[in-house]
Amino acid sequence: MKILVPVKRVIDPYVNIRVKSDQTGVETENVKMSMNPFCEIAVEEAIRLKEAGKAEEIIAVSIGNQSCQETIRTALAMGADRGIHVLTEEKVEPISIAKILAKICESESPGLVISGKQAIDGDNNQTGQMLAALTDMPQGTFASKVEIDGDKVKVTREIDGGLQTVNLNMPAIITTDLRLNEPRYASLPNIMKAKKKPIDQKSPEDYGVDVTPRVSILKVIEPPKRQAGIKVENVGDLVEKLKNEAGVI
């Protein structure tokens, strides 16, 4: 079985995000970029399935500019077998990504697509679901546990009320939640081996997908700064403020 893992290049989670002064977006020039943490979890899960003998090949896909190759290399260094890089300078939206992935699913016929539940930049949480709709594959989103049994996969999902377990026929789509696993470090020997693993370079046109954005961003601004709190002298003051200023009692 093949596992397809889409990986997204995002601003490193530990970098302080700065809004561009012209309010067209956030600063990405000279900013440290990393693999989206949820995608890392997806890569890790795919590797664990392969190590358990449930899968033979892991394909990492990234869609975006030239530097997405680095993100694919990271996946290869963790243990993916080969990469597909769909090169575009456009800011790709979930629907375009899902359409391209659907085409890749057609040609590669993976038994599982494991993706992050969302990327930490756009927080869209849509791509996996859209891909499921486009390919008519069953989906198990927000996975905290994945168990393969024959041609079925049991996915434990983290939902508001607790845990829900779904049984899916494969091929299926899984999106990962934070608690699914803890991604490994890419070891030095694997980093060196990753240099030799193949990455196919494609373009959206190869898949017949128009990636022109459907949504135009009007303005990006910083969230309002939180005001400092106040200290009250005594309980009487507190009650007075809660009643008259906050209006909560």
């Binding site: 990393s34 290399r73 260094a77 240099k195």
Partner: peptide, 9 residues
């Protein structure tokens, strides 16, 4: 690239 990847890890 391998130095950068190693630094990261």
């Amino acid at each position: 690239e391998s130095h950068h990847a190693w630094r990261e890890e």
